[in-house]
């Protein structure tokens, strides 16, 4: 062996095991999300009362064994309504966010990859749509077409898509400047092949985090729409709507306001904790990949 080969012998890397390492807060957030999903799926099986059933007890009763969160102005059981409201809230949220992430992701990746006049024009359009305040546009659209669960979903998805597209495009730009993309181009790979094989796997981490963050925004936004009366139609036990209905009588009993508010807040906190931890993990993976083998 020549001396140069010998020297290269010291150029060996150590192999390391890679596991998913979220922080404690991240696990907590994940657990919270899981609990909510379970409640959404199974709630109708074990909630003590139906959502629309009035006068299950006297109006504005306080907390008791029969009514853990008391009753509202129509005597409906707040606990049941909160539990049963989980399904419409989670469905609307995740459906809207999923649509937005898929659509926005596709647009962002294509624009970020092309980087020609299509990209310039596309980004201008994205900027223009973003410049309309979300709430205003949502109110306009929903009042134009009517309150329905799926309309709210589509509207929210439409409003979030350009914002997701921006994030996806930025992530794509980061990936596209790498030489392995040039290597694929030199091989003559098709645009579709490059987007699917080379770009997409490298932005999934960021898009997952974006999904989580957008979900948190979506819950608050949909809640705000419900609060203003532009969300799912009553008597859907949607939390924002419940808070609106309960607001006028807040001096009588705070339970009908606090319970759905807390439900919303805890879910959003859980999602944020999870998203934070996930994004730090992804950052670290990127850093490690660059510095590990030095």
């Amino acid at each position: 062996m020549s001396t140069t080969e010998l020297a290269a012998g010291s150029d060996k890397a150590r192999v390391t095991r890679r596991g998913i390492r979220l922080s404690a807060a991240g696990w907590l957030g994940g657990a919270i999300i899981l609990v909510y999903v379970l409640v959404a799926l199974t709630g109708s099986l074990w909630a003590p009362y139906e959502a629309a059933k009035i006068l299950t007890g006297a109006p504005f009763e306080g907390a008791s064994l029969a009514h853990p969160f008391g009753t509202d102005n129509l005597g409906r059981d707040v606990f049941s309504r909160v539990v049963l409201g989980t399904r419409p809230v989670l469905t609307m949220t995740f459906a809207a966010t999923l649509l937005a992430v898929v659509a926005g992701g596709l647009i962002g990746v294509v624009l970020g990859y092309l980087r020609n006049w299509v990209d310039e024009v596309g980004m201008r359009i994205v900027d223009i749509v973003i410049s309309i305040p979300t709430l205003v546009l949502a109110l306009l659209i929903i009042s134009a077409v009517g309150n329905s669960l799926w309309l709210v979903v589509v509207t929210v998805a439409f409003l979030f898509t350009p914002r997701v597209a921006r994030v996806a495009r930025a992530a794509t730009l980061n990936v596209v400047t790498n030489d392995y993309i040039s290597a694929a181009l030199a091989r003559g790979e098709s645009t579709l092949s490059i987007c699917l094989r080379e770009i997409l796997p490298n932005i999934t981490g960021i898009m997952l985090v974006e999904f989580a963050i957008r979900s948190a925004f979506a819950i608050i936004f949909i809640g705000s729409l419900g609060f203003l009366g532009f969300g799912a139609p009553p008597p859907t036990p949607e939390w924002g709507l419940m808070i609106n209905e309960a607001r006028a009588n807040a001096s009588n009993s705070l339970w009908p306001v606090l319970a759905p508010a807390a439900a919303m807040a805890v879910l959003v906190i859980g999602i944020n904790l999870f998203a934070d931890s996930l994004s730090r993990l992804i950052d670290r993976q990127g850093q490690n990949a660059a510095t590990e083998a030095k």
Partner: peptide, 18 residues
């Protein structure tokens, strides 16, 4: 800050009123 960020504005408002 995290807690405030996760509360919708109307919830913060109603809480403050209460």
């Amino acid at each position: 800050v995290l807690i405030f960020m996760c509360l919708p504005e109307f919830v913060i408002g109603i809480l403050l009123i209460s």
